[in-house]
Structure formats: C-alpha cells, structure tokens
Computed example of a mutant assay.
Amino acid sequence: MNDDTAKPEDTKPAPEAEVETDAAAPETAGPDPVEVLRAENSELRDRILRSAAEMENLRKRTEREVSDTRSYAIAGFARDMLTATDSLSRALMVLPAEARDSADPTVKSLIDGIEMTEREMQRLLAKHGVKPIEAEGQKFDPHKHQAMFEVPDPTRPEGTVVQVVQAGFAIGDRVLRPAMVGVAKGGSSHAAAADAVDKSV
C-alpha cells in the first residue's frame, strides 16, 4: 500500500470565515495630520506676532523712559539753582540806580560780577532745557501760574495775568516752579476782542 496517497480530509480547504471577519472590522479614523499641522502653525504664528508686539512695546517704553531720564534728571538740581538765581536777582533789585552810579569802582565791580553770575546761571539753565514760563498778558493757567492777588482792571479780560511777582520755570513739559502772578478782575471777557477791533479800524 502506497503512503503517498492523500487522505480526503487533508485536501479540505481552510475556512475563510476568520479572514472575512478581520477584513470587515471597522477602522478608527484619527485627526487629519494636515489639519493638525495647520492648527499648530496658526498657534505658533500668533505667538510670534504677540511676542513681536510685546518687544516693540517694550522698546518704545524703554526709549521713552531713557528720554524722560535725560530730560528730567536735573529737575531737582535745577529747582535748587533757581533759588540761588532768585537770590542774585533780589540782591540786584534792592540796589537803587543812583547807588550804582555813585558807587566806587570796587562796589561797581562787585555789582557787575553779580550781574554776570546771574546771566551765566540763566544761560546754563536754558542750555539744559530750563525755560521761563510765559505769564504776563497770558490767560491764567493754574497748571503754570499761581495767583497771588487780583487786580481790578476793566481794560483787561478777567483772568488775564497782569503782573508777575516771581518768574516761573519749566523743564520740558514739566513745571519746575509756577509763576507767581497777579490776575485781572472785573474786566469783560470780550475786552481783548474789542481792543483788537478798535486798533484795526
């Protein structure tokens, strides 16, 4: 009897049921990789734009602070210097003109030296941005002027500065010392306009 003879049960085909079951199993769909990359790209772009805007704001703020420091660093010193300048001015004001004319050469030299010192101090203050505040003839501004008294003057509009007792000074946009002034009272608010019309006729 030949052993190579195949048995009928050995030639039976393998069942395909399991293969069909595996092929029919549903696949779980994940997020689209392109959309994920686009979202990440958009988020990174927003972050970069925000960072750039923050850096630009920081740069501008730093420049402004440096500029303010340069402009106003001497404010305290300048305020003290104004006090010294005022003392020199008052010393010159108390000297009557006849006393200057009749003074001996030594006293005249002393007076000239005080005048030169005052002028030089004013020049140096102006060099560093300290400027006098315009007051006389201007409308009273409580941010720049300090009213000391009122002057009855119907020819001037009410609230006009008519007299300066002590000059005011500012450095840049900041007031170092307000001007001490006398202010017109009782004048018509239209007096200036009327004067202008009369002069032009």
Rank of each mutant, 00 (worst) to 15 (best):
N2G: 06
D3T: 15
T5I: 14
A6L: 13
A6Y: 05
E9I: 04
T11I: 08
K12S: 04
K12G: 04
A14D: 10
P15A: 14
P15R: 15
A23V: 12
A29K: 08
P33W: 02
V34P: 00
E35W: 03
E35Q: 15
A39D: 09
A39G: 05
N41L: 07
S42P: 00
E43D: 09
R45Y: 02
D46T: 10
L49I: 11
L49Y: 03
A53M: 04
A53C: 02
E54I: 10
L58M: 07
K60E: 10
K60M: 05
R61N: 08
E65R: 13
S67F: 08
S67N: 11
D68C: 06
T69H: 15
T69P: 04
A73P: 03
A75S: 15
G76Q: 09
G76N: 12
A78W: 03
R79Q: 09
R79D: 03
L82Q: 03
T83R: 10
T83V: 13
D86A: 08
D86K: 08
D86P: 01
L88V: 08
R90T: 12
A91K: 00
L92S: 07
V94Q: 07
P96F: 01
P96E: 14
P105Q: 08
P105T: 02
S109D: 14
I111C: 03
I111P: 03
D112V: 05
D112Q: 07
G113V: 00
E115F: 00
M116H: 07
M116K: 09
E118H: 10
E118C: 01
E118M: 07
R119Q: 14
M121N: 06
M121F: 11
Q122G: 07
R123Q: 09
L124Y: 09
L124C: 02
L125Y: 02
L125M: 14
A126Q: 14
K127H: 12
K127F: 07
K127E: 15
K127T: 13
G129A: 07
G129Y: 02
V130R: 08
V130S: 09
K131W: 01
I133C: 05
I133E: 02
E134T: 00
E134S: 09
E134G: 12
A135I: 01
E136V: 13
E136N: 01
G137H: 07
K139E: 14
F140L: 12
F140T: 09
P142V: 02
P142C: 03
P142H: 07
M148E: 11
M148Y: 10
E150Y: 10
V151T: 12
V151L: 09
P152F: 00
P152R: 07
P154Y: 01
V161A: 06
V162Q: 00
V162R: 01
V164Y: 06
A167T: 05
F169L: 01
A170E: 13
I171A: 06
G172D: 04
D173S: 13
R174A: 11
R174H: 11
R174C: 04
L176M: 07
R177D: 01
M180R: 13
G182P: 10
A184F: 02
S188W: 05
S188D: 10
H190G: 11
A191P: 03
A193E: 15
A194L: 14
A194D: 04
D195G: 13
D195W: 05
A196G: 06
V197P: 00
K199E: 15
S200K: 15
V201K: 06
